[in-house]
């Protein structure tokens, strides 16, 4: 006869979890159910018990009423979850980028065994992986802080200000036309000669024997790419004036930058003793990429802020 009540209480107990006074909570509920059955003077058969239990509420909802005050992360600490995640992500991922560029393998956080990154595609896949790792780490720390008695005053660096420089760069339309003009000329040269780089004006497209001929083509494509991206951005901005366009522009440069960093040294120099020259260039490119990432975060923040309005 008591089985449905026991089952009901067990279900509530499941949702209450490890709550320290759960035993007494269950006793209270059980006592109430019996009081009600007794007070109503009804036969405590299966049907009536089921009705009384139904009236008391669904086990999950009943348990939640008792859990309202217990938090995994206290509401006042929740805002730190994302901010701290972003800060740690920046440092963590930044180190991965540095590790990739410099070829030095290191790890600052425990259990992060995926530090050896060998290609730019791996570097991209590490963005969500690193973020989830850092999110979990911060959540765990905030959980322990929440369980501690007393108030903890956590640092709140004003990153909102740091990441709020976003302005839609509206450049004059004539610059767009000018860039388009340059692009058309250079593109025509590229189609005709296979490169726009005139190594020696006297002898057009005569490659330096120290360098691979392909590098001229690559450099030409880079210049044409920048011209094309900037021209399209200026025209689109003049028409739509949207942060999405700036973000698209950033992402194109980020992808191109990562491709460039990934370019093998022997594709540039025939002489392997010259490969060392590329290291400072990689670092410079890495710094430029960090600025682009900074711009991307500012733009994403601006888009989210606009959506929240």
């Amino acid at each position: 006869m008591n089985n449905p009540i026991k089952e009901y209480l067990e279900e509530i107990s499941h949702y209450l979890g490890e709550k320290k006074d759960s035993e007494e909570i269950l006793q209270e509920i059980e006592a109430h159910i019996h009081d009600k059955l007794q007070a109503e003077g009804i036969e405590p058969d299966e049907k009536n018990i089921a009705r009384v239990l139904r009236e008391y509420g669904k086990p999950r909802e009943v348990a939640e009423r008792y859990l309202e005050d217990s938090h995994i992360i206290r509401p006042s600490y929740r805002r730190f979850l994302f901010q701290y995640t972003w800060i740690i992500f920046f440092i963590h991922y930044g180190l991965k980028v540095i590790s990739y560029i410099s070829g030095i393998s290191f790890s600052i956080l425990p259990f992060d065994f995926s530090i050896n990154i060998n290609s730019w595609s791996q570097l991209i896949t590490h963005i969500p992986m690193t973020w989830i790792y850092d999110f979990g780490l911060v959540a765990l720390v905030l959980y322990f802080i929440t369980q501690e008695p007393g108030d903890k005053r956590l640092l709140w660096p004003n990153l909102g200000k740091f990441f709020s420089h976003t302005k839609i760069k509206k450049r004059k339309i004539w610059i767009g036309w000018f860039l388009l003009f340059i692009f058309i000329i250079l593109f025509a040269v590229f189609l005709r000669q296979g490169s726009i780089v005139f190594y020696n004006p006297a002898e057009l497209i005569k490659p330096d024997p120290m360098q691979r001929p392909d590098i001229y083509r690559v450099l030409s494509i880079i210049v044409l790419f920048i011209l094309a991206v900037e021209t399209i951005t200026i025209f689109l901005q003049s028409r739509f004036s949207s942060i999405w366009i700036t973000l698209g522009n950033n992402l194109l440069y980020l992808t191109a930058g990562l491709l460039l960093i990934n370019m093998p040294a022997d594709m540039i120099f025939t002489d392997s003793s010259l490969h060392g020259i590329l290291n400072p260039m990689s670092w410079l490119l890495g710094i430029i990429l960090l600025f682009i990432v900074y711009d991307i975060i500012c733009n994403i923040k601006a888009i989210l802020a606009k959506k929240a309005e």
């Binding site: 006074d21 909570i25 209270e28 509920i29 006592a31 109430h32 009081d35 009600k36 007070a39 009236e55 008391y56 509420g57 909802e61 009943v62 009423r65 008792y66 309202e68 005050d69």
Partner: peptide
Amino acid sequence: MYGYQMIKSFLDLGYPVEENTLYPLLRR
């Protein structure tokens, strides 16, 4: 008073109270 008595007395006053609301409140 015990819980069920309270619920009955509120009901008599014309103020029905959900059982699963009362007990967590008593605990608080």
